[in-house]
Design a protein around this nucleic acid. Structure first.
Lengths: 173, 173
DNA sequence: TGCTGCATGTAACTAGTTACATGATTGT
DNA sequence: ACAATCATGTAACTAGTTACATGCAGCA
């Protein structure tokens, strides 16, 4: 999976602007695939050149104009080709776990800071996911809803383990 | 965290060759940071130029010679500077969850394949982690042992959820 | 007066991956 | 005969990130 496949997946439902796409990323798959504007805009341009999507400029009043992209037949084929391609293993990059692994070289203050920062990040994510669930859950496909639930369960799991790691490494929690 | 910081962390304990370092990656932090030879060797070269490590050629009988790298004072400082630097959020890249999210566009056969492949990967990882635990657990620092236990618990969690996702999306499991 | 939201993009860089390339030894 | 282990590396590429750059509308 790369950013292009995911954008094509979004455009399977409805045409969107780069800005819409960014919001869609943040509200749906950001827990297992993050995207930035600097990744999205060049990707859209490239996909337009390749004939996978078409651009239409929409004039708005009181807001900047926007480029709305729609998927083409070639784009749909590319998306289905992605679904057919062999799936790849999940990749995790955890700075927290790397640091914790080397914990014997760290001061108690450093350890405490890492745990606190990580907890804050996870808790914020947890709140965000619950909020998303409340606001859009009934409009989701069963698959989308399940990935959201998975995200919530995963966050809860991480939080519990973080607490365990804190306790076991002598932090007062 | 980048590959250099992790290599420095390994070399804090003992000098190692690129090959040793690769094995160390695979046996310890591969669940939250993967590395390949093509990443390790250039990194070692760069770190040697920067004076963070020194190289010593060790002649072996019946085996190729190896370049053994040891951390320098400057290297230790760089490692401690890493530990002091602000920690970064965990990044997950899950092809499986992206595909599952777009499940409404997939055939039952595709879904089944994705779930099966993912299960095989997780189960293999689970076996690997248990094996690692059996063979080296007593030689680990408490921090290393805890990250290993976390990995095992996390794998179990993923497996349970995978089963749930399979059931909920109409797969016979 | 300043912040947030809407909206788009480029330039320079970094950090990796994939594929290629080699070769001896040990075990099955 | 073949695979696995030990051992090192380069070249070309990809896929992103960070920082920079702009500007209007609406709200407080």
């Amino acid at each position: 999976m790369n950013i292009e496949s995911v954008i094509l997946g979004f455009l399977m439902d409805e045409p969107m602007s780069g800005y819409d796409i960014k919001r869609k990323f943040d509200m749906s798959v950001s827990n297992f695939f993050e995207a930035t504007f600097s990744g999205i805009y060049p990707a859209l341009r490239k996909m337009e050149s390749a004939g996978l999507i078409t651009k239409e400029v929409v004039i708005q009043q009181g807001k900047p104009n926007k480029n709305v992209f729609a998927i083409t037949e070639a784009g749909k084929e590319a998306f289905f080709a992605y679904l057919e391609s062999p799936s790849r293993a999940t990749v995790v990059h955890s700075d927290f776990l790397i640091r914790f692994f080397f914990g014997k070289h760290a001061s108690k203050e450093q350890l405490q800071r890492w745990i606190l920062d990580e907890r804050n990040r996870i808790e914020e994510n947890y709140r965000k996911l619950l909020e998303t669930k409340e606001s859009v859950y009934e409009h989701l496909t069963p698959f989308e809803a399940l990935t959201l639930d998975y995200g919530i369960a995963h966050t809860a799991f991480s939080l519990e383990w973080l607490q365990l790691l804190a306790r076991e490494s002598g932090m007062e929690v």
